[in-house]
Each structure stands twice: as structure tokens, then as C-alpha cells.
Design a protein around this nucleic acid. Structure first.
Lengths: 150, 150
DNA sequence: AAGTAAATGCTACAATGTTGCATATTTATT
DNA sequence: AATAAATATGCAACATTGTAGCATTTACTT
């Protein structure tokens, strides 16, 4: 277990962004860090019942503004949040990655380090940020259906 | 004006999908057809105040199921709807296109006929549908800021 | 023209987004 | 270590959107 190490890391992370190191914020960070897919706001609520919904909302907003997390909408239009990779914590938001939304479990996986294509935009469109989204079946759900259906 | 022609076309479109040709549905279709960017549900409501919100909701759902329109979430997580191109009305959803979300006016432009890259997914991810999203400044807003700022 | 299937409009409620404000907590300062 | 200043939390309240049931109306079939 590196919970303490994480707490320390996260405290540092908060300090770097001039955010006070509070219990709710640390819990949100370690929750997000514990998953390899984005977490929906309802899921966060369910796990942290004692944290006020409004507070959670403001925490997530603050984190997003600071570039600590990023938001992605799943197939249902629900906001899901994931920690940004270290490359993202720098100044320039390095959001160019693939979001893979599983149609079975609805998890949104952030798959980084993807080569995005050169864009061929019509005249006048000035792109700032790209992201590629895919829907499909994630490894976990693919395995399940193998067992059940084959 | 080709409003009548459109009405005819849309009636046909509805019939092909076994949807009854009703006033609200035709109005939604011509509204969506009149724009080159996706329209949010609130915007649709504002224009068609006399159409019940629940009805609008069901119309949009029905259209989406039938592949007549597709839904895309803008930067605020609000659902925006746009007519699918003819290629999309066939069986296989041909949703592979670029959604360009302007950070100024918030419009979502559907830019079709884009070459999507071959995906390089980690093992086990089975993609079904791809879409590339970009944020940035659209031609209209780019022009405005030229005038104002230069 | 009449019957049937389907859509609309209404109502109502659930989930989520959002804000104001009093209280509590953190961090800087002494 | 104690205190002040700045900020975050928790609570309450309201706005917006998603969603469903049901009675009435409308569109298509024969």
C-alpha cells in the first residue's frame, strides 16, 4: 500500500496549484488515482456519501480549472473525471488522447500516447484541442461475453 | 424557398422509418436541416415553445434510434443534435466524422468526410464507433475577433 | 368513414448543475 | 503555539434536464 505516499504526493500536487490540502480533496484525488478509467460524478458521490454534493461539484471544477483532472462525457452525457497524466500538469494542456467508452460497462478509459492524425479542417477553423473518442467493448467486458456466449 | 420540398422530403424520411408524419416532427426536422451545426435541446425548445418538452425529448430519442439524427455533447455536456448525412441513414451508422466545438459561440459543427486514422488500441479493446472531437474557434467567431482585436 | 396504433401534451418526479451564506478549516503570520 | 486572514465545506435552495405514466388527440389502414 502506498496510500501515505499518495497522500503526500497529492498534498504536494494541491500545494503546487495553490489549493488547500483538505480531506475531501485528498479523498477525491486518491479515488480518481485508484482507477484506470474515468469516474462519473454519481459514482464519486456513492463512494463519498459524507461529502456534500455541492462541495464535490466545486472540487471537481477547481481541479479541472487547474488542469489536475479532465472531464469527459460518456455515452449518456454524464460527466466523468480522470486524473491528467503528468504531461498534462504542465502549462499546455496535453489532452490529446483517446477516450474509449465501453458500451457494456459504460466505463471511459483514457488511453494516452496516441498518435493523432494531422487534421484536414475546412478553411477558417482554428483547432485548439483534439480528442478522439471511440465506443466499443473494453477488455473486461469482452472477456465476460467470451465466457457467456461462446 | 424550398420549405415545401423539405416538408415532402421529410415526410418521406419519416415514412421510411415507420414514424408518423406529425407536425412537431416535421418542425424539428426542418429546424435541424436549416443549420450547419448541431442544435442543443434548449435551443430547440426556445424556438418551438409550443411543443412539449417531453414530446421533444421523445422525438429526439426516436430520431436518434432510427439513425435520422445523431447526438453530440458540447463543452458543457449539453446534448446537441444534428441531422445525419445520407450515408448515415443506411443500416450501418456512418458516424465517423469530426465534431468541432467552438469555444466562443459553443456551436458544434459536424465536419464529415474526414479521414480517420487507423487506431492503435491496446489489446482487448474492440472499437465499434469512432469520432474525433476538436475544440477551437470557428470561422464565424474567428472573423469577429479579427475585426475586434486587430 | 371507422378502427387501431401511435404520438402528443400534461403532470410529476429524479438526477444533476449551480449558487449564497454561515460555519469550519487551513495556511500565513506573529 | 496562538491568532488572523483566506479559503473550503456543508447546507439549503432553486434551475435545468432526463424520464415515465396516462388521458386525449392524431395519423394511417382497411
Amino acid at each position: 500500500m502506498n496510500a501515505n505516499k499518495n497522500k503526500y504526493q497529492f498534498g504536494d500536487l494541491l500545494a503546487r496549484h495553490h489549493l488547500k490540502k483538505t480531506e475531501p480533496r485528498l479523498r477525491v484525488l486518491s479515488m480518481l488515482a485508484s482507477k484506470n478509467f474515468a469516474t462519473s460524478q454519481p459514482d464519486l458521490e456513492d463512494v463519498m456519501l459524507d461529502i456534500d454534493r455541492g462541495t464535490l461539484y466545486r472540487i471537481l471544477n477547481a481541479f479541472e480549472e487547474k488542469g489536475i483532472i479532465h472531464k469527459v462525457f460518456d455515452l449518456n452525457g454524464t460527466a466523468n473525471y480522470a486524473l491528467c497524466k503528468s504531461s498534462c500538469e504542465e502549462n499546455h494542456h496535453h489532452d490529446e488522447h483517446l477516450h474509449f467508452n465501453c458500451v457494456v460497462c459504460n466505463n471511459v478509459y483514457c488511453l494516452d500516447d496516441l498518435d493523432l492524425p494531422a487534421l484536414n479542417l475546412p478553411a477558417g477553423f482554428q483547432p485548439m484541442n483534439l480528442s478522439l473518442s471511440a465506443t466499443g467493448i473494453c477488455p473486461k467486458c469482452g472477456k465476460k461475453s467470451d465466457i457467456t456466449e461462446n
